[in-house]
Simulated scan of single mutants.
Amino acid sequence: MDEVRVERRDAVQVITIDRPQARNALTRAVAEAMAAAVDELDADDDLAVGVLTGAGGTFSAGMDLKAFLRGESPAIEGRGLGGITRTPPRKPLVAAVEGWALAGGFELVLACDLVVAAETARFGVPEVKRSLVAAAGGALLLPHRVPANVAMEMLLTGDPIDARRAAEIGLVNRLTPEGGALDGALALAATVAANGPLALAATKAVVRGSADWGPTEGWDRQAQLVAPVFASEDAREGAAAFAEKRPPVWRGR
């Protein structure tokens, strides 16, 4: 689909929402293409990490309101807005943010595990200003990514914050000069992709799942997720590569 470009950079998949004339607003077709892209990311053993970005100097302005008024939804049942906010990919996903990440566009950022942003980027959940609720992940996920009182202020005022403030509160991992977010995200993704794929997926599953686990349940659930990793060929390869002072060769098993 022309409005969602998918490309490979070694072990990194880059997904670009390419509707700059509409500030990369989300339609049903865009959501379906994004869902297909992250399915490919998870299914392909040669891909380790995904990067999500927007074309034309904007990340995404969220839901396409013209399409919404026509009765079209950019959410996929069981998967959420853009096909990822409720069920993000199993593999790590990095957001590369230029310009605005607004409303549903901001909720796409929250579906990502790491965030690289240009210093000129801005983030916001303005739904309450239109008597709407950030129900595609904003109200649920933001309090787990930033201090609860900060999340409450953003959600109740609807006012945006700039990239430096987003970095101060822990929402953004790395800042870049304007125009450099994608390169910064690719560099971060390459660092992540060099690690064991089984360990990456299990680590993400523990971190993402732990918010819903009780103290006792958490240890048991973690054990279930990490046991196959410790018993894998890759775990033995990691130890051997360290001992032999060479780069590891991962097989994903």
Rank of each mutant, 00 (worst) to 15 (best):
A36W: 04
I76S: 00
A33S: 12
T216Q: 11
Q224S: 08
E237R: 14
A33N: 11
D212R: 09
L188E: 05
H144A: 10
A235P: 00
G218H: 07
L110P: 15
R174T: 07
A118D: 04
W219R: 10
T27K: 02
L225W: 06
Q21I: 00
T27N: 02
F106G: 15
R19I: 00
R130T: 12
L142A: 05
S131I: 11
K91W: 06
P147T: 05
L81W: 13
E119G: 01
R122K: 11
G137D: 11
A31E: 08
R246E: 02
E233H: 09
V38T: 15
L93E: 10
G158V: 05
G218Y: 08
D234C: 09
G80I: 07
A202E: 08
A101G: 01
L225C: 06
P147F: 07
G218V: 08
L47T: 02
K204A: 05
R9M: 10
P126T: 04
E168Y: 02
A118F: 01
Q13L: 15
W100M: 12
E40F: 01
G83P: 11
A31N: 08
R145C: 10
E3F: 14
R174S: 04
E7Y: 05
D42E: 09
G180L: 09
D2P: 13
F242H: 12
F68D: 01
R130Y: 13
V30C: 06
L186V: 06
L142C: 04
A33C: 03
A231W: 08
A181S: 13
V49K: 09
R19H: 03
V133M: 06
I76D: 07
A185S: 07
P88L: 10
R165F: 15
P248H: 02
D45Q: 13
T87F: 01
V249K: 12
I15P: 04
W213Y: 10
V226S: 02
I15S: 04
E7S: 13
M34L: 15
P143F: 06
A139C: 07
A185W: 05
E40Y: 00
L198N: 13
L41E: 06
V51E: 01
G209V: 03
A163Q: 10
A163H: 04
E237I: 09
H144N: 07
H144L: 12
A187Y: 03
W213H: 09
W219P: 00
A193V: 07
N24R: 05
A231I: 01
T157C: 03
L182D: 07
K204H: 09
L132D: 03
A37C: 08
A235G: 00
A240Q: 13
G80D: 08
L65H: 02
E217P: 00
A29V: 03
D159G: 10
E7T: 15
R246L: 04
